[in-house]
Design a binder for these strands. Structure first.
Lengths: 227, 227
DNA sequence: GCCATGTCTGTGACTAAGTCACACAGGGGT
DNA sequence: ACCCCTGTGTGACTTAGTCACAGACATGGC
């Protein structure tokens, strides 16, 4: 789909690195990018695949995760509006296959850029360099935080943290299953059920099928802030 | 220290991206790089610090690790000859503080490059781009492998894997303590002692103070290859 | 409205991993 | 030879994870 002036405005609003009028990226980007729409549940990348394009999300979120042989999963990071998946960029720039899975968590609209341009623009646009390296830094930090979480923190604190983060986004009633929390944090569904039960017995939450209501967010905050 | 023609040859031998005679990087690099020597045990970076230079190792290794509040550690990756610490590059390029610790595991000699040049060369040299993005890809993979290891694999298999890897480098007798293995893999010294005891009872290794002799590497290989 | 099926949750029994405290052995320095 | 420090082993405990199974709830088809 061609990019008309309405779409240009939307892209500039969402993608910070193409706002500078004096950078050649502006012209390049609007010449080469196209718009893609992907439905919720669509797999974007599989482990081991190569990447022909880089997608920058305009809306929606994509989840990047690792999948173990035993079916267990863990989320590495999420890609939101204005961001792209740095593993895709890394794939493109170094010819190493994609080392994880990526899936649309919501319906997603993205600006898609051919792989050959991703590299070329690095030489020609400092805004693009800043954008790409900003993402590299963010994702390295994200993934290192996952390592830190998994190795150094107890599961009950990680679950409390997770519930608080979701509350910040959607309010006191979370529509989420125990299995979804387990997949997010890389643990077993039974472990999540047991810990949520304890939280309920402590009066911090109310658990019903497919949803969790946070009754005492302060206390949950305290729990995940503990050492 | 100035770079004479002997050192130029050593640098070209070790650092693959400055071998191309037609890339401007060659001239830039020899103009700007200096040589640093760091002793074993020297801390290179602390968590939260900023980085003024990028170091490319000529020999020796540096260990990049995360340290928990409870004193536990886990190795994220190691930097060897010809490589640099990509978290340093990421720091430099995106102005985010260093998110881990780095320490010299052996005496280290490195070519050191000012931060301002690291960024500038990205625009001017495709060899430097390839080098930096090759490292980005490698380190992202390394760290994702750590997540995978920790979340999906049993500790006894991880220890068997570790012992096999060390054997490949130094032979059947490893000079290593239980605590060092624990710090490498992000676990407790007691857990390592118990698992090594089991390996000894199974006839795979012989444990003495400060060293481990691999008696049956084949069987250890089988162990870490199991699901 | 009822029934079947699939999804979600809870629980028991077990193993694996981690923590804490403590004791002992070995090596190095004086 | 003695002292101190480091490295190791072990017991008792808690936390986390696995496996199997049962029950409740929601949805879709008839």
């Amino acid at each position: 789909m061609a990019i008309d002036s309405n779409m240009r405005a939307r892209l500039a609003e969402q993608i910070q690195c193409i706002r500078q009028s004096d950078d050649p990226l502006n012209q390049y980007f609007f010449e080469k990018a196209s718009i893609a729409n992907l439905p919720k549940g669509q797999h974007v990348c599989h482990e081991g695949s190569n990447c022909s394009h880089l997608a920058i999300l305009l809306n929606g979120t994509a989840r990047v995760y690792k999948l173990g042989e035993n079916g267990k999963e863990i989320t590495l990071y999420r890609v939101g509006p204005g961001e792209s998946c740095i593993l895709t960029a890394s794939c493109i720039l170094s010819h190493i296959p994609f080392p994880a899975f990526a899936i649309c968590e919501t319906d997603v609209e993205a600006a898609v850029v051919p792989a050959s341009d991703v590299r070329r623009w690095l030489s020609e646009s400092s805004a693009w360099q800043d954008y790409i390296f900003g993402l590299v830094a963010t994702r390295l930090s994200n993934i290192i935080n996952v390592v830190e979480d998994v190795v150094f923190r107890r599961m009950d604190k990680r679950i409390a943290d997770h519930l608080c983060n979701r509350m910040d986004k959607t309010g006191h009633v979370l529509l989420v299953t125990h299995q979804e929390i387990a997949s997010e944090l890389g643990t077993s569904r039974e472990v999540v059920s047991r810990i949520l039960k304890e939280f309920e017995l402590d009066g911090m939450i109310k658990v019903t099928r497919g949803s969790i209501e946070l009754l005492d967010p302060e206390k949950l905050h305290q729990k995940h802030s503990e050492r």
